[in-house]
């Protein structure tokens, strides 16, 4: 993900409760995140997500792991493919279940 520095990522959680719990934990860890609606391209869900720079991903993982936040979550980020001016979303688990 190093070549995508500066692009935005979205943290997606099952429930609004976990969005708010993660927001609280990450703000306490001084990680700049913002609560925004889940982008429609990602999910038909009507909930909220957290967004921040992709550069923060490792510190987000560390902070949530230290807070024992083991609730399933996903990270979604924008990426250019084959030089086309089109954005795709790729997903992978934020944390492994312990």
């Amino acid at each position: 993900m190093g070549n995508q520095s500066g692009t935005k990522l979205y943290l997606i959680f099952h429930s609004i409760h976990n969005v708010m719990l993660a927001e609280e934990l990450l703000l306490q860890a001084n990680i700049a995140i913002e609560m925004v609606p889940v982008p429609r391209e990602i999910s038909s869900d009507c909930g909220m997500s957290l967004t921040c720079s992709v550069d923060n991903l490792e510190s987000i993982k560390t902070s949530l792991r230290e807070a024992n936040f083991t609730t399933p979550a996903k990270v979604v980020y924008k990426s250019k493919k084959e030089g086309k001016n089109q954005y795709f979303y790729e997903e992978f688990p934020l944390l492994e279940r312990t």
Binding site: I16, H17, M35, M48
Partner: peptide, 21 residues
């Protein structure tokens, strides 16, 4: 309504439930 819409008032309502829990 909490957890339904993406606007700031929905988030404020969601926070009430979150803080109560």
């Amino acid at each position: 309504s909490p957890g339904r819409s993406g606007h700031q008032l929905a988030a404020a309502a969601g926070r009430i439930l979150f803080q109560t829990r």
